[in-house]
């Protein structure tokens, strides 16, 4: 698959003290919806800003849509919605869209047509001539999304696009994203809302303290962590766990934080039946049995917790902790 974003060793040091990015390698394929997740201060927005020339990287190798990162010309093919945008309140949404369309080099007739079309797509057609100052946060977010699409971009970068948007609005935005994908565009999403990413993303990357810790499809990331789970009514004793482990030799147990749960790394239900027999014969009541794949949230939490400073917010200071 052709790479839309392909960067290696991206580093960003602020004032020679704060190491926001510490060698990020990232590859986003054409036509996919890619999700970048990470805790606050992980460097997600910094990475996006480096790609969009809003921030100058200390070190960066790689390409954006085939051009060297930092090339201004290629940005005419990129749409961007920043996280805490503050569009001019004196403009109407139609004026805003036309303005940013012109800034991206879209011709006048095309700007007018696209502005009307996109306002309809994001459900803001009735507010086209109202000033942004009178909008709610969710409405501004919808207009911001439309703004990012004004130049028919090949790559759309959205930083927290559903921030402040109600559930209906989120659903609408998801539909827009899927439509963009169907049109062959690449969508790069930065979001904290893991469940939403899980619904739309083809691939994700988890970033912790300026480094990409994991990257791949959700299936790839959960590989080795999926399996059949047996959940009892009460905690399962260590003796029972040992007995079951002996009976199911060859099937690796997966660590779980729930004391009443046993998870086995297999997709074969028959292979797990002896465990149920042992539990039943010992008088344990089985509450649930089924195939279980870790959620994106669990993957995320695990990746963050694996890092010594993962749960701490903020970028890492050089030679120390944040």
């Amino acid at each position: 698959m052709e790479a839309v974003i392909d960067v290696q060793g991206v580093e960003k040091m602020y004032r020679r003290r704060v190491h926001a990015l510490r060698g990020v390698d990232l590859r986003v394929g054409s036509g996919e919806i890619f999700g970048l997740l990470g805790p606050n201060g992980a460097g997600k927005s910094t990475l996006v800003k480096v790609l969009l020339t809003v921030i100058r990287a200390t070190k960066c190798q790689g390409t954006l849509l085939g051009s060297k990162v930092g090339d201004k010309g290629v940005l005419s093919q990129v749409g961007y919605l920043p996280e805490h945008h503050n569009f001019p309140k004196y403009l109407t949404s139609k004026q805003l869209l036309r303005h940013f369309g012109a800034m991206s080099g879209v011709g006048r007739a095309e700007r007018n047509r696209k502005a009307d079309e996109l306002l309809e797509v994001v459900g803001m057609k009735d507010w086209a001539n109202a000033k942004l100052g009178s909008y709610s946060k969710g409405m501004r977010q919808r207009v911001g999304l439309a703004q990012a699409l004004m130049n028919d971009p090949k790559l759309v970068i959205l930083d927290e696009p559903t921030d402040g948007v109600d559930p209906i609005g989120r659903k609408d935005i998801r539909e827009v994203l899927l439509r963009l994908k169907d049109e062959g565009r690449t969508v790069f999403l930065n979001s904290h809302l893991l469940s939403e990413l899980e619904m739309v993303c083809d691939r994700v990357a988890i970033m912790v303290h300026g480094l990409v810790r994991q990257q791949g499809t959700i299936e790839e990331l959960t590989d080795g962590q999926s399996g059949f789970a047996v959940r009892a009514l009460e905690p399962i004793s260590d003796e029972l766990r040992e007995t079951i482990s002996k009976r199911l030799s060859g099937i690796d147990p997966i660590k779980t934080s729930d004391p009443s749960e046993l998870v086995f790394a297999t997709s074969d239900a028959d292979a797990v039946q002896p465990a149920i027999d042992v539990l039943r014969s010992s008088g344990v009541t089985i509450r649930q049995f089924g195939f279980r794949r870790p959620s994106l949230e669990e993957l995320f939490v695990k990746a963050v917790q694996e890092h010594p400073d993962g749960a701490r917010p903020g970028a890492q200071r050089k030679g120390g902790r944040s």
């Binding site: 969009l52 020339t53 809003v54 940005l75 005419s76 920043p82 945008h85 001019p88």
Partner: peptide, 15 residues
């Protein structure tokens, strides 16, 4: 140059 205003402008193809 205020936060939220400059980012979308700088992300356009203008020096």
């Amino acid at each position: 140059i205020s936060g939220g205003t400059i980012e979308p402008v700088l992300s356009k193809p203008i020096g």
